[in-house]
Amino acid sequence: EPREEEAEKYIKRANGDYDKAQELAKKDGNEEIAEAIKEYKKR
């Protein structure tokens, strides 16, 4: 799923820090991806 791939990219950029990844996504205006990262975190 493209959303998950995007989320993974942010998580990698944030060195595995989900909260930081979420912030990066929000900064880029990717609210949807920020949500996907939140879902990811719950797994």
Score class of each variant (00 low, 15 high):
10 Y>G: 01
3 R>V: 14
36 A>T: 09
24 L>Y: 08
32 E>N: 08
8 E>L: 15
14 A>H: 01
8 E>A: 10
9 K>Y: 12
34 A>F: 06
34 A>L: 11
7 A>C: 04
21 A>F: 00
5 E>H: 07
8 E>P: 02
25 A>G: 01
17 D>G: 01
40 Y>S: 05
40 Y>P: 00
19 D>F: 05
3 R>H: 14
25 A>V: 02
21 A>K: 00
24 L>N: 06
4 E>F: 15
32 E>H: 12
16 G>M: 04
9 K>H: 11
22 Q>F: 15
11 I>R: 00
26 K>P: 01
12 K>F: 09
29 G>T: 02
9 K>L: 09
30 N>W: 07
4 E>N: 15
33 I>E: 03
13 R>H: 08
43 R>Q: 14
39 E>M: 08
34 A>D: 03
9 K>F: 09
15 N>P: 02
28 D>T: 02
25 A>L: 01
20 K>N: 05
32 E>S: 11
21 A>S: 02
3 R>T: 14
6 E>I: 10
33 I>W: 03
9 K>Q: 12
32 E>D: 14
4 E>V: 11
17 D>Q: 03
3 R>M: 15
34 A>E: 05
7 A>D: 02
19 D>T: 07
19 D>A: 07
30 N>S: 07
39 E>P: 00
13 R>I: 12
19 D>Y: 06
39 E>K: 08
32 E>Y: 09
11 I>Y: 03
2 P>F: 15
6 E>V: 09
25 A>Y: 00
21 A>D: 00
19 D>G: 05
36 A>D: 05
4 E>L: 14
34 A>K: 03
7 A>R: 05
38 K>D: 07
35 E>M: 09
35 E>I: 09
4 E>P: 06
42 K>W: 08
37 I>H: 00
25 A>I: 02
43 R>P: 05
40 Y>I: 15
30 N>V: 06
36 A>Y: 15
38 K>I: 11
18 Y>N: 02
19 D>M: 06
10 Y>K: 00
1 E>L: 13
15 N>D: 09
14 A>R: 00
11 I>S: 00
41 K>R: 08
24 L>A: 08
15 N>T: 04
4 E>T: 09
24 L>K: 03
29 G>F: 05
6 E>K: 06
